[in-house]
Amino acid sequence: MFKTRRSLRTLANLLPSGALGLSVGLAAADAAAGTSVPERQEGSVAQRLQSLRLDVSVALEQYRKDGEPFVAVDSEERLAWWGNGGWRNGGWRNWGNGWHNW
């Protein structure tokens, strides 16, 4: 899947830039598509989210195999911001549904 999908190739480029880079890249992609109605996607939202996470897992595995982990191309600050501890610490733990009033 990783080698056959255009979005995966782009995702692999975007992930090392952290949330900010992903936010910038996806906003640009969305804006470039203008007001055209996107093709209707197959599957439920839950299935699309699962597929997306599989894409991330595949990208991570590819980085590992290639010996080009994110840490080689990004700053400590940006990695840490990905998930309170970053990828290398097995982060993500605290990326929950935080409280919005602060």
Binding site: R9, L26, D30, A33, P38
Partner: peptide
């Protein structure tokens, strides 16, 4: 937005 990456070369 992520789906647009897949379906639009310009978006990517």
């Amino acid at each position: 937005a992520y789906d647009r990456l897949e379906h639009s070369p310009a978006a990517a």
